[in-house]
Simulated scan of single mutants.
Amino acid sequence: MKNILIISQDASMRDLLVDSLSKHEFSARVVENRQQAAGKIASEAIDLAIVDLSLGREDGLRLVRDFGAKIDLPIIIVSGDNLDEADKVTGLETGARAYITKPFGLPELLTRVRAALRERPERDRNRIFHFDDWRVSAKRRRLRRGTDREVKLTAGEFNLLMAFLKNPGRVLSREQLLVATRVYHQEIYDRSIDVQILRLRRKLGQNTGSTPQYIRTERGAGYVFDRVVNVEELRTRSH
């Protein structure tokens, strides 16, 4: 049974979500603020968080930003407000897998929850990807260059990088990258993907003239990872 953490100050919303999720064989936990959420995540195995922006726009987006950058936790944003595009992009690209506006249908919510909970294939978790002097651990979700310190990536940026590493030399459309990063808000996907690629390029040092151009734009088609990628399979211990 998957554990869902509901973060909301709206009692009626909490009751609605708990009732609906429980009827579909999910285990729901409820907290009211960021501090309680951090404590719950530290003490229990949480599979997905639903963040209601009734917390307040700034607090809610900060929570999504902080959790999305630090842990691999799927997040769904729920809001009664029509956020502007910049705020939607901020929430989605820093960890949220979906954005839902109130009022919403419970079937839509359940669809988003199930989609966000899809596990990554175990095979990918046991792989190390190498290109040039870069090393990417799928299991630990870490990016390093040589002996340098770890390069911090948001959840969206890491998923985007993994999509490229598993398809080197292949042109990937924005729609394919949208699916790979698990961003489901179709209205803004073009800008969301472009912003994430811009930030990923910067973290790979691509903006400097002497640095290889890893992510190349194919005008009118999408993007391509223009480097040879070697894959190292880690052995799993048998008991």
Rank of each mutant, 00 (worst) to 15 (best):
H130L: 14
R141M: 14
G209E: 06
V195H: 11
R201T: 08
V195R: 12
R191F: 11
R170H: 05
D124W: 09
G156C: 00
F164E: 02
R191L: 14
R120Y: 04
F129L: 14
D124Q: 11
K139T: 02
L178M: 13
L204W: 11
R142Q: 15
A138P: 00
N207V: 00
E175L: 04
Y223F: 14
L161Q: 08
D190L: 00
T147Y: 07
F131M: 05
G220I: 09
Y184D: 09
R149G: 14
L177E: 02
Q196E: 08
R127T: 10
R170F: 10
N230R: 14
G146R: 01
R202L: 08
R123V: 12
F131R: 09
T181I: 10
R174G: 12
E218W: 01
G209W: 05
E233V: 11
V195P: 02
D190N: 12
R201A: 05
L177D: 03
R174N: 15
E157N: 04
V231K: 09
Q206R: 05
T211H: 09
A155H: 01
R127I: 12
L198E: 11
E175H: 08
V171F: 01
R202G: 07
E175D: 10
L198C: 02
L143F: 10
L177I: 01
K139M: 08
N230C: 03
K139H: 11
H130V: 08
G222V: 05
W134R: 04
E157Q: 15
R202A: 15
I215K: 02
